[in-house]
Amino acid sequence: MAKRGYPDHQPRIPPGWRLATVEKWPINTMHGPGLRPTDWHFKTSGQVRKPLSLPYDEFVQLPHITKKFDHHCIDGWSYLGNEWTGVDMNTIIEMTRPNEGVKYVHVEGENEYSATLPLGQELMLAFKRNGEALPRAGGWPVRLVAPGEFGYKSVKWVQEVRFITEWEEDFWNKKLIGWGEPPIDPALNPWNVNNEERKAGLRKLFTHLLEEKRREKLERMRKSGEIPA
């Protein structure tokens, strides 16, 4: 059966979403452009028999696949038909051998960004998009691609995958959003989105983030003496 996030899923666009009005790959970097890792290693940790630590050159030599997935940002835009190349999470699972009882992966990026996802869900650790290495703002060296999820689960600048037995709140759950589980019949709305809750949640989120930015800016100006302390 076709799954949401894939090009053959219908409806291809979640209700209320619009196609991105740009030709270039839309890159939304609300949680920063990412650091510039000089000693990046892909690591696994947590409940595993064999923790991994692979430098970039070794990571991209792992068996990898190329697949097309659509991208749907929670902001309400979609960008269709991205061709991703990367390592299937199942390959990592075979290498790192999680212990019995592991139910989730907690994928950690930079600036404390993270996503928790169920073990067994299709996930790709992508290092190329449309045949080209990712740009830094697009998640270089490696980003997660989580088809069927909204974009905020696709962690950029992946550092580590931690295998865990209990659900752990991720960055989005903890810091950013307050909308509840959407109470919509999936048969009627396969995307399972309550748009009013989504929009109210985003407005709340943006208001909160802007307040933080204003506070930071004022603090910087006070420190630099531009305005009185």
């Binding site: 209320g16 619009r18 991105a20 740009v22 940002c73 902001d75 309400g76 835009w77 943006f206």
Partner: peptide, 26 residues
């Protein structure tokens, strides 16, 4: 940056980032 549009006279967001609905924003 992400092409959101606003009516500068009222502050009302007309279009969100990359053409999304404007009413996702304050």
């Amino acid at each position: 940056k992400h092409f959101a549009r606003f009516d500068i006279r009222t502050g009302i967001p007309l279009v969100g980032p990359f053409g999304a609905d404007g009413d996702t924003q304050p």
